[in-house]
Design a protein around this nucleic acid. Structure first.
Lengths: 202, 202
DNA sequence: TAGTAAAGATAGTAATCAATTACTATCTTT
DNA sequence: AAAGATAGTAATTGATTACTATCTTTACTA
């Protein structure tokens, strides 16, 4: 985000900062995202960041909220277009994968935040995101059972868990490959197996 | 690993050090595993570590090799006991989950190492582990197709990917829960779905 | 049992981190 | 155009990091 303008209004600056962090996370270890690195990328001095965020944790929290907002919005939009619970799940899956392909640093940051021992503000934000995401998933799974698309004996929690896990598996694969090149195609193949695992045999 | 003995022979000290790191990873962010923290846990001064490892990366590499050795040994043992490819996959899954339940810090460290931008020694060790693990998986999947247990149209790479991903999903769930309490039961339910996704419909 | 090599303690180093300070440049409002 | 508010700079802080140089203790062996 190289809006070259100096002296941005605070709101704008915060927005640019958050997007810069997302960008940096795509290129390097979330661990290496120092306040100095963020500032440098924006063409600012390190101290200037603290004019807009009280501390680094608050900055990361803002990033997590940015992610939650955008990801959930996309997923909800995808769901609206689909016509059946199973189609909704597929649309969610692909929308999620698409989001990850566009912002490869995001899952790294999320997972990284989850690992912190203390109950930090950004960690809480991640937990909220996952809760909201899981709720949407489980709603579709239950709807699917109701209309006969999904096998009744499928454990909802496990199915929701596996859904998220399968995306993580794809992320790890792209991490190993060093690029998101095959991410979308692999996603299709993986979802096919998942789908077969939960749908009812008509 | 509180072998209280001071003045251990070098080989013993290295072993204890590696096990201490695995222990620490279970309790805190891999990020927080400083050389000082490791030494403190062992009742040693920080500088003493460098008598046994040239640097921290070498230490972490030793940890990754420890993990690879133990995990693969368990998985191989589980496979030997099973009587069909699909039973092998289930045995691998459960053995893997069991290993993770015993050493909850391990997957965090693995994932953490994968994220480092540079091609570090520990990262290479992780990559080797995953390669060996995937080879075993794909072998069983192919055998399963051959003997008619697994549907021929299943994409091997995707199935292997989903297998690993589903374990990651379980790990994340236990990370959210803050304990590995439900890990084993959840694993059963998740594998049931996975299994249904790949097996042939007789 | 004396000598020695290995293992650990002590006390540092330079580098890096987030955060804070006193100050300056720019924009906005009247 | 004056004045106050906002945004950013430059330099520095104390804490923490991996790592090292030097001295001391231990265990083994000749």
């Amino acid at each position: 985000m190289d809006e070259q303008t100096k002296y941005l209004p605070a709101q704008e600056r915060r927005r640019v900062t958050v997007e810069t962090v997302v960008e940096l996370a795509a290129e390097s270890n979330p661990n290496d995202i120092t306040t100095a690195a963020i500032a440098k990328r924006m063409g600012l001095t390190q101290g200037a960041l603290f004019r807009h965020f009280p501390n680094k944790a608050a900055l990361l929290q803002a990033v997590m909220e940015w992610v939650a907002e955008r990801l959930l919005a996309r997923v909800d939009k995808a769901v609206q277009k689909a016509s059946s619970p199973l189609a909704c799940l597929e649309a969610m899956f692909m929308a999620h994968v698409e989001f990850v392909a566009e912002h490869p640093g995001v899952p790294r940051m999320l997972f990284g935040e989850l690992q912190s021992a203390e109950e930090t503000a950004p960690k809480l934000a991640v937990r909220t995101l996952i809760r909201l995401y899981s709720e949407r998933l489980q709603h579709q799974l239950e709807e699917g059972k109701r209309c006969g698309e999904i096998a009744v004996h499928v454990d909802i929690r496990a199915a929701s868990n596996l859904f998220i896990g399968s995306i993580q598996g794809l992320v790890m694969q792209s991490l190993l490959a060093g690029s998101v090149g095959h991410l979308r195609e692999d996603a299709q193949l993986v979802f096919a197996i998942y789908c077969r695992g939960i749908r009812s045999t008509l």
